[in-house]
Design a protein around this nucleic acid. Structure first.
Length: 507
RNA sequence: GGCGUGUUGGUCAAUCGGUUAAGACGCCUCCCUUUCACGGAGGAAUGACGGGUUCGAUUCCCGUACAUGCUACCA
């Protein structure tokens, strides 16, 4: 049987890195087994629908290179892939469940439900559920006389369809990551299957669509584990148990500090992205930064996520996507949640930058120069990148690490120079500017530049170490960057002289 | 409150009963570098607790603690 997996997000906002990891594991599993990876949009909640969120998800997957084989935009043999467009499908199954006594109509209003939660609340039971112990006290086709139910139905009274959870049944299923998991069905509430607006809830929709789409393996976050018995029962009641996918509940990605699931707010608070790409809130216009925009390479982002909860057992951390496909196995996914470590995430990106050729990096870094009004020629940019890449962790660092190659520093660290400034040094730099100025253009190269400098140091009976740092600051603006003479060579004779002269005047 | 799941250094983690308990990130020291970084060499730092099972437990079992998830006509 051909492996088929699916990622089923609901289009309600930015794509969380945990979501991307779920996509990744789905993708790797599908590729490894020569199967299909489908994107299905779970947009059954009309009230939470967000315009543009679906396209955003697709864009994120494209950026990451995790392209589905079937999706709403691409189509496929099981179209449509948007649950809102599959609405007509679900009712018949809910009806079948009712006919066979596994589900029932419930006419309770929101207020009725609120009342129930208040009335039956006790210290021992702080959260009363709509379950086998309470359903006979509610307004539904199990508690009401048949005639009354028929009447309500005839009058188009709004209703939902709820699953009738057995009062005495224990369930077991084998999770690919966790092994055997046991549940007591009497402790699970009668989940709504079909909402008053005719849309299915997640519970009905996953089961029906996983069945209809021939899904063989279902990976989802650990937060779904408690409702697994509902899904299991649905597969059983609908008579599809032989076709039920194998489940794998993935561990959560936790906050780096405190406790709990990593959320968008944690990113804002701690200063790192949580979404794959920038997400603009349609109502407030507020933009939440994404990994792409702050300068992550998609390969690094994906590699980092792969390692957040999985490893191949050898200690290897850097993998190409092909290697991941070959080596990935769901059994080696961790059971416990992992705290997200942004420092480690940056380390991955740094590694990828070091292993990427300069021409490719030039293309990736270019936008960061352009937004600063600089349009470097490719050849020049590549030389600069070769010089600064080892000190760049994010693609956006390229600008900060090399802007001085393209524009003279606006301010320089005068304080540091002034601390040890002297007439002697001033004379030296004036002489240096002169010497450089008189250097023939074709002699402006690394060796000559340094040679000239060394000779002058000797003539002025000055210590080289005392003038190296000032020179750096004059050219760069601060105490950072690649070799000073490399910089001088690259920015050219005139610019070097100009920066020295300028600086000396200010001091 | 109930139910589920989990627990190896600060973080990610290897180990599938016998190891001086790997490795990576971060941190510290030193070397290299007349800046910063890269690189190199070191270092500090770990099995939640209590019981079993066993010749022997980080590893298997049971409790306890702690953490986390769910407990919506949200997914």
């Amino acid at each position: 049987m051909k492996v088929r997996v699916r990622f089923a997000p609901s289009p309600t906002g930015g794509l969380h890195l945990g979501g991307v990891r779920t996509v990744l594991y789905n993708y790797l599993f599908a590729r490894k087994h020569g199967g299909d990876f489908v994107l299905r949009i779970e947009d059954t909640d009309q009230s939470r629908f967000v315009e543009g969120a679906e396209q955003y998800i697709i864009d994120c997957l494209n950026w990451c290179g995790l392209i589905p084989d079937e999706s709403p935009e691409k189509g496929g043999p099981f179209a449509p892939y948007r649950q809102s467009e599959r609405k007509a499908n679900y009712r018949q199954y809910a009806q079948k469940l009712i006919d066979e006594g596994h589900a029932y109509y419930a006419f309770d209003t929101t207020e009725d439900l609120e009342q129930m939660r208040i009335i039956y609340k006790t210290p021992e039971n702080t959260n009363p559920q709509y379950d086998h112990s309470l359903r006979h006290k509610m307004k539904n086709s199990l508690s009401l006389p048949e005639a009354e139910v028929a009447e309500l139905l005839k009058n188009n009274t709004p209703y939902v369809i709820r699953i009738k959870m057995p009062g005495q049944k224990h369930l077991k299923f084998t999770d690919m990551i966790r092994g055997d998991v046991f549940f007591d069905c009497s402790l699970v509430d009668d989940k709504v299957l079909l909402k008053a607006d005719g849309m299915p809830t997640y519970h009905l929709a996953v089961v029906v669509d996983d069945y209809l789409m021939n899904i063989t393996h279902a990976f989802r976050g650990e937060e779904w584990l408690p409702s697994a018995p509902v899904h299991l029962l649905l597969w059983e009641y609908l008579g599809w148990l032989d076709n039920m996918p194998q489940w794998a509940h993935l561990p959560l990605i936790l906050k780096p500090d405190g406790n709990g699931k990593l959320s968008k707010r944690d990113g804002d608070r701690l200063g790192f992205p949580v979404f794959a790409m920038n997400w603009a809130d349609i109502k407030t216009g507020e933009i939440t930064k994404g990994f792409r925009e702050i300068g992550f390479m998609p390969q690094a982002f994906v590699n980092m996520l792969a390692m957040l909860g999985w490893n191949d057992g050898t200690g290897q951390e850097l993998f190409t996507i092909e290697e991941l496909i070959e080596k990935f196995s769901i059994e080696r996914v961790h059971k416990g949640g992992a705290k997200f470590d942004f420092e480690k995430a940056k380390w991955f990106n740094h590694q990828y930058i070091q292993h990427t050729d300069n021409a490719t990096l030039a293309a990736l870094a270019l936008p960061y120069f352009e937004i600063n009004g600089i349009k470097p020629i490719a050849e020049q940019l590549e030389k600069v990148i070769a010089l600064v890449k080892e000190r760049c962790t994010l693609l956006s660092d390229f600008w900060e690490q090399s802007s001085f190659f393209f524009i003279a520093p606006i301010t320089i660290d005068e304080k540091t120079i002034n601390e040890k400034w002297s007439e002697q040094k001033k004379d030296f730099f004036i002489a240096l500017a002169n010497k450089y100025s008189n250097t023939k253009d074709h002699e402006w190269n690394l060796l000559e530049i340094e040679h000239t400098f060394n000779n002058l140091v000797q003539q002025h009976a000055i210590k080289k170490g005392d003038v190296m740092l000032p020179l750096r600051i004059m050219l760069v603006g601060g105490k950072y960057g690649p070799g000073v003479f490399n910089i001088a060579e690259l920015i050219g004779k005139q610019e070097t002289v100009a920066r020295i002269v300028n600086a000396v005047e200010k001091l």
